[in-house]
Computed example of a mutant assay.
Amino acid sequence: MNETSGAALPSTAPDTDRMILDEASERLTEEFGSVVDAATVARILDSSYAHLEAIGIDHARLAAFAERSARERLTALARAEGRAVRTGPAVLFVCTHNAGRSQMALGFFNRLAGARASAWSCGSAPDTAVNPLVVAVMAERGVDIADEFPKPWADELMRAADVVIDMGCGDTAPIIAGHRFEQWPLPDPAGEGIEEIRGIRDAIELRVRRLVANLGLTG
């Protein structure tokens, strides 16, 4: 067990979560040890857990989601500091709740771009779960986002992104000058029926396909 385990993790975490987080800290330190130190891994894992806990994420999955969120942030941090662990452009899809539009965009982008790029999503006021109707309509397109979860803004993601897409929420305040920025004026699927959400999904898919082509990621 590395020296940053235990005490560096959230003091509010139940014992079972602390054990899971200790193991996650070891895995992440091994994975990112060539680009960041163990203290940085522990700090980012700690804050990921705390942020997701504050949102109200299902506690049964909280520790596992914290590890996933920390892995994204560490990947982005390495990229932002010129020590990228993955090549290709990085795209960040942002909206308020990170429960609908940005999750659909991320799902389509990952499907179309694959390993040729990195992509993340986040929200300024994340919900507790992805809209189940959004999950359903994406499944109709063969894109599985059932295991995705809303995530808050993270400085590492903002710094690392080459392209930042505002999904129509107007959440532009944290955007860093100098990055390519696009606004996609799309309606919010929250509270809408499945037919309306299908229309939003199709509009997002079209825009993502254009973005992927523009970035030279097709084929």
Rank of each mutant, 00 (worst) to 15 (best):
T4V: 10
A7K: 11
A8Y: 11
L9W: 05
L9I: 04
P14Y: 12
P14C: 08
D15A: 15
T16R: 14
M19H: 15
I20Q: 15
I20K: 14
L21Q: 09
A24C: 09
F32R: 05
S34C: 00
V35R: 01
A39F: 00
D46N: 15
S47P: 02
G56W: 03
G56C: 05
A60R: 15
R61M: 13
R61N: 15
L62T: 08
A63H: 13
A64D: 13
A64W: 01
E67L: 02
E67T: 04
S69K: 06
A70V: 07
A76I: 07
A76C: 09
A84L: 02
A84N: 02
T87R: 14
A90V: 05
V91D: 03
L92G: 05
C95E: 02
N98V: 02
A99S: 14
A99D: 12
R101Y: 00
F109W: 12
N110T: 06
N110L: 11
N110E: 14
N110I: 02
R111E: 14
L112Y: 07
G114R: 06
R116I: 07
R116M: 05
S118A: 15
A119V: 06
A119L: 03
S121C: 08
G123A: 12
S124C: 00
A125H: 12
P126A: 12
P126F: 07
A129N: 10
V130S: 09
N131A: 03
N131S: 07
P132R: 07
P132Y: 00
L133A: 15
E140H: 10
E140S: 12
E140T: 07
G142E: 06
D144G: 15
A146Q: 01
D147M: 09
E148P: 00
P150Y: 11
P150N: 13
K151G: 04
K151A: 03
P152M: 07
W153S: 05
W153E: 13
D155P: 03
E156V: 08
L157W: 01
M158H: 09
M158P: 04
R159T: 03
R159F: 02
R159G: 04
D162N: 12
D162G: 11
I165Y: 04
M167W: 04
D171T: 13
I175C: 05
I176P: 09
R180K: 09
E182C: 07
Q183D: 13
P187S: 14
P187R: 08
D188T: 10
A190I: 14
G193L: 09
I194C: 02
I194R: 10
E195R: 14
E196I: 05
I197W: 02
R198W: 06
I200N: 14
I200R: 11
I200G: 11
R201Y: 02
L206K: 14
R207P: 10
V208P: 01
V208T: 00
L211F: 06
V212S: 02
A213M: 00
N214R: 07
L215V: 10
L217Q: 11
L217H: 08
G219F: 03
